[in-house]
């Protein structure tokens, strides 16, 4: 934070300071395309892209894909969180002896490429929704598991001892001490995973799907519908921002989220 006239001069000022550059960038894009500085065939003006998003929404060729992608991403993410957070907390808090044995298998497993998995899963699950959700699940699982594990194992032992002195049992310690104390790390893992989930899902949808934003981006590329391609890219980026922003809001509301900016954050 810089000290100066800009600092602490009201939320509007601070907001402008942070986000004015986005508006500037969009304006520059618009002007350069309209003015012919860049080839408008490859870089249509931003207003045209927004118009395309709107008309696609009206025609019903946008929202079904948004819905398909969001559903897949959220299913995979929620499943990964449901599996990864409890497992990570338990492993980190109590079974740290186990970690010596598990570190190596976890490292190898986390290197199993989700797209590799895709080719294997198609053999079992067909080309339905399941393999895409599995890709998101697998991608999200490892950051969530590792951050929960590291969060739980770095809880101040004095807190745990104090809890024990007040007569908390194992379950009580986990719920009342370990989970809240490790929540900043757990949340940063969840947030990172949420960012990954969209990224990997889009690539997965480009590889084999019949709907979803990745599919939309691919088909518009292949048929050279440049405006629609930009429309899908803008929607994908916006969804990423919106998911991250929603997660931050929820996190700030309920827990003390560490506000350190991680990758792909909307800060």
């Amino acid at each position: 934070m810089r000290e100066g006239p800009g600092a602490g001069a009201g939320p509007v000022r601070a907001f402008l300071r942070k986000y004015a550059c986005i508006a500037l960038f969009l304006a520059a894009w618009e002007l350069m395309s309209r003015g012919g500085l860049v080839n408008p065939v490859f870089f249509p003006p931003f207003s045209v892209v927004v118009e395309t998003v709107w008309s696609m929404t009206l025609q019903g060729t946008m929202l079904p894909h948004v819905k398909a992608s969001l559903t897949r991403a959220l299913y995979g993410f929620v499943l990964a969180a449901a599996a990864g957070v409890p497992a990570g907390l338990l492993l980190g808090a109590w079974h740290s002896g186990l970690r010596r044995h598990l570190d190596m298998p976890f490292e190898v497993l986390s290197q199993i490429n989700p797209f590799l998995l895709f080719h294997v899963l198609i053999l079992f699950m067909g080309i339905d929704e399941a393999p895409k959700i599995a890709i998101v699940f697998w991608t999200c699982l490892w950051p969530i598991l590792f951050s929960s594990m590291n969060g739980a194992s770095s809880v101040n032992p004095l807190l745990v001892r104090a809890g024990r002195a007040f007569g908390l049992g194992r379950a009580g310690l986990l719920v009342k001490i370990v989970a809240p104390a490790s929540s900043p790390l757990v949340l940063s893992g969840l947030r990172l995973a949420l960012g990954y989930s969209m990224f990997m899902l889009i690539a997965a949808e480009m590889m084999g799907a019949s709907r979803g934003l990745g599919w939309l981006a691919l088909t518009t590329q292949e048929t050279f519908q440049v405006n629609s391609m930009y429309a899908s890219v803008v929607v994908i980026a916006f969804l990423g921002l919106a998911l991250d922003g929603a997660f931050l809001l929820a996190g700030r509301r309920f827990l003390a989220v560490s506000r350190e900016g991680f990758m792909n954050s909307a800060e």
Partner: peptide, 19 residues
């Protein structure tokens, strides 16, 4: 500080889609 938000937006652009 001023351009960080823009950089974050760029980071969200999936290069795959604009190949």
């Amino acid at each position: 500080e001023r351009i960080e938000a823009l950089l974050r937006v760029f980071a969200l652009i999936n290069p795959y889609c604009v190949f």
